[in-house]
Write a protein that binds this DNA or RNA. Structure first.
Lengths: 283, 283
DNA sequence: CGATGTCTTGACGACCTTCAAGAGTCGTGG
DNA sequence: CCACGACTCTTGAAGGTCGTCAAGACATCG
């Protein structure tokens, strides 16, 4: 529900699209793209040989597009890790998402025909370029696909809702906890380990994404380590108590204050250990 | 940039769609709908008489759709005020938006074919029902319209980005300030006064939307009143210093900390009056 | 090897939530 | 008509969370 929560559509574990990784120029069929998108292509679409999509490689630090640049294509991540950022009116970067395999970039450029955010590669990346004209024409060519295409945008929107909700109502600890779990699930879905993985981004970037400072991110990770929810060392993380990480909350509703279980106040911040709360407080 | 920031597409001040307000059953043409959407219809579309859209009325408190309900239509607000909410896993309502004339509801239902949020009327409302099948078929029938349709979804997404950004990086005061300005601009665009207007929602709902408690909302409004930015009395508000309201910030970037003007620390919280800061602090 | 960027940790304090009490407002029913 | 309850809103007091500022440990790199 947090970051790039990929579909529940019985994802058939997309086979790696195309073999040679470092060709510099590579092409995908419509069927490949659909599978990457988590969309089940129809027979008609599967057979289509007339549309092919170009791949492009980016190295860490490179930009796929920048704010204000004329919009002409969507980008579909085939491999690698990236971030998208907005620049607020004070000139600060604000991280909006950490796209990875299967995610679509550039959607926010459709409306005003120019990208409203910036996409930066955090590692070497391989992305499929989908010219928007081609994208929209697909809906006409394969009407069965149309719903899926709108679905792609809708999915992005739902994710943003969840993000806004989390930012507004969860404590810093809870946000970091969920962030880790979301990453874990994402990695699992790609065939990597969901328990042990590397953060591809800095504390600063995580903080910006989660609406807190890098210091708070660092402190929270240290605290989680101390109480045994995870093990951290730099950017390598091992999750040890996923349940605890994902069930943290805060705010005895402010609405359920009135009615509902009038006993058991502080119990809402449900930690696994009794001691946990104190340890966290003691930071 | 905050709430329902309506397009910059030279909005031609949509004429009120259809005359009789209290008919209970009313119909709009495609051209009407396009104009409400802020989309310029092509001649072909303007002439189209074969598609008509049904209106439905709702009274304050009524729900247009609820979470989990099968998705089949988008709703376009013609008049009235509403809120959309999500229910988080603790069972709390979280306000996601305050839609009004020209806004589209239900977009988040496309992906999984069921609504992911709930829409509630805050006042009497008149909405246009757009069956999703009709919506998507329009793209095929009038290819020139297709881009606009995707644009509608893209616009929603951009708005959410701005919201997430604001939640993550602005102080409570700044968020309330911008919220008021956004409302004002919205009302102006509809032909109402942008200086004097009524809040249609409770402090609780504002707080939920802005990620703070109702008490903080109340206190902030009182403080704005005290220093002369606005005049409040219950739900009626008069804006007196829009500039001040919209330019509040916080967080000497944490990134521009390194370089940039090393002097003038606290100056970033740019208020119009020197005294303002103290007054706010004295609350 | 200094320079730069990342990460950790501590101390302090401001901002905002929490808890509580009271004033208004509105609708319903006696 | 007024009383009553249910909400909404305001304001105060207290405390916790998290941002701010600072210093130091590492790691990477030209």
């Amino acid at each position: 529900m947090f970051a790039q929560s990929r579909i529940a559509t019985s994802a058939p574990f997309n086979k790696p699209v195309a073999g040679r990784q470092r060709a510099g120029q590579l092409w995908s069929s419509l069927a490949d793209v659909c599978s990457l998108l988590g969309v089940t292509p129809t027979v008609a679409a599967t057979a289509a040989d007339d549309v092919v999509f170009q791949h492009v490689q980016f190295k860490a630090g490179q930009r796929l597009f920048t704010i204000g640049q004329p919009f002409d294509a969507l980008y579909l991540v085939n491999s690698g890790f990236l971030k998208t950022v907005m620049i607020d009116d004070a000139g600060n970067e604000q991280v909006l998402s950490f796209p990875m395999k299967g995610d679509v970039l550039g959607v926010d450029g459709i409306h005003l025909k120019q990208y409203m955010s910036e996409a930066v590669a955090l590692s070497s990346c391989d992305v499929v370029v989908i010219p928007f004209k081609v994208f929209s024409s697909l809906g006409r060519k394969y009407p069965e696909l149309e719903l899926s295409l709108y679905g792609v945008l809708s999915r992005e929107l739902t994710r943003e809702h969840a993000m806004a909700s989390a930012l507004g109502s969860l404590s810093a600890e809870a946000r970091v906890g969920r962030f880790l779990v979301a990453l874990s699930e994402r990695y699992s879905a790609m065939g990597y380990s969901g328990k042990e993985f590397n953060l591809r981004m800095t504390r600063q970037e995580i903080g910006s994404y989660l609406g807190m400072t890098l210091e708070t991110v660092s402190r929270t990770l240290s605290a989680f380590d101390r109480i045994g929810y995870i093990a951290v060392e730099g950017r390598s993380v091992t999750l040890k108590d996923m349940q605890a990480l994902k069930t943290m909350r805060r705010l005895p509703p402010s609405q359920s204050r009135s009615k509902e279980v009038p006993s058991a106040k502080k119990l809402f911040t449900n930690f696994s250990f009794e001691a946990a709360e104190d340890v966290l407080a003691a930071v």
